[in-house]
């Protein structure tokens, strides 16, 4: 591997129980408290403040935690499976597939409930990710930057199908609204499905090592007694569920899965186990921060978090690319 996006950066620093982790938890906790207290409605003073707090602020903050952790874990799983640092749902078309699935359900069953919509999104995301992995299995140069380039084109193809369907059914502007990731509409009674992704985070914690082995290739994985196909299926399933659910409930969170694992391994090296909690924390922190910016920058209106994440993520992505360029 000469273009080593996967090359180890630094030796692992410490074990899982790192006092710095507590500081990290503290900082994220503080951010979440700020998130709970930010908004137009005066939750402390008004008479129904407590209720409003429970209906809007609490669900929103929980959603930030779940979506942030899930999407960054998702990116990590994809990077482990493909051994390519620049792979994540946005750069492999997974997000676009989830969107297409959601749109398909909306077109065929206009009154479909959230479960059906999520089912469509998850299924489509699963198919799309499998197609891309099938392509990667045939390809020799996995570590190449061409992988995300091709993945983005793949996403563009699927996106153009969505656009076509939306145009034919007069839903083009709605399409933009659905896909733009935003926590504005996260209210009690509508976000609970997001708890599914909490399970995913737990599963990733348990089986992360197997993903690393599977990422080394079918032969190496089989050699150490791992059922390669099953691990790939499991990984794809986790990615599809996380992407699908988050897309339906929140929308698209571009580049989150890419920047979080990369930034963590930049500071902490490539020790997977001890990095996992950091990936979760950083994911939550970034989403919460972007959401806070989105809520305050043009208050009383809101900028969707996907716009901020899209711009910030693009800048960080480019910075990572330039950094890698120097390190060969």
């Amino acid at each position: 591997m000469t273009t080593t996006p996967t090359a180890p950066r630094r030796p692992p620093t410490r074990g899982l129980l790192d006092p710095r982790l507590l500081i990290g938890v503290g900082v994220v906790g503080a951010l979440l408290v700020v998130s709970l207290l930010t908004g137009e409605y005066d939750v402390v003073g008004a008479s129904d403040g407590g209720e409003m707090f429970a209906i809007t602020r609490v669900p929103r903050t929980i959603a930030l935690v779940l979506a942030g952790a899930a999407m960054s874990m998702c990116g990590l799983v994809m990077q482990l499976l493909t051994q390519n640092r620049f792979v994540e749902p946005t750069t492999t078309g997974t997000t676009e597939w989830a969107g297409l699935g959601l749109l398909g359900v909306m077109v065929v069953f206009p009154g479909a409930g959230i479960a059906a919509r999520m089912g469509g999104a998850v299924l489509a995301a699963f198919i799309g990710t499998m197609v891309f992995f099938a392509f990667l299995r045939r390809v020799s140069l996995k570590s190449s930057l061409i992988v995300p380039i091709v993945g983005i084109m793949f996403g563009a193809v699927v996106g153009s199908v969505s656009t076509f369907v939306a145009l034919q059914t007069d839903m083009l502007q709605n399409l933009g609204i659905w896909f733009a990731g935003s926590f504005t509409s996260v209210l009690r009674g509508q976000y609970e499905a997001l708890w599914i992704v909490a399970a995913i985070v737990v599963v990733v914690f348990i089986v992360a090592d197997r993903f690393t082995v599977a990422g080394l290739g079918e032969e190496i994985a089989t050699n150490v007694g791992l059922n390669y196909d099953r691990v790939i299926l499991l990984g794809t399933g986790l990615i599809a569920i996380a992407t699908g659910v988050v897309t339906v409930v929140v929308g698209n969170l571009p580049f989150l899965g890419l920047i979080v694992p990369n930034v963590v391994s930049m500071f902490r090296g490539d020790d997977l186990r001890s990095n996992l909690p950091w990936v979760c924390l950083l994911g939550i922190a970034i989403v919460t921060l972007c959401d806070l910016i989105g809520r305050t920058i043009i208050a009383p209106f809101e900028v969707p978090v996907s716009l901020i994440l899209g711009v910030v993520g693009a800048v960080v992505f480019i910075a990572l690319l330039l950094r890698q360029r120097r390190h060969g």
Binding site: F86, T90, P148
Partner: peptide, 13 residues
């Protein structure tokens, strides 16, 4: 390749 990817990402932003 970095140039291509940066171009694509600026486009995405």
């Amino acid at each position: 390749q970095v140039m291509l990817l940066v171009g694509i990402i600026i486009g995405g932003g």
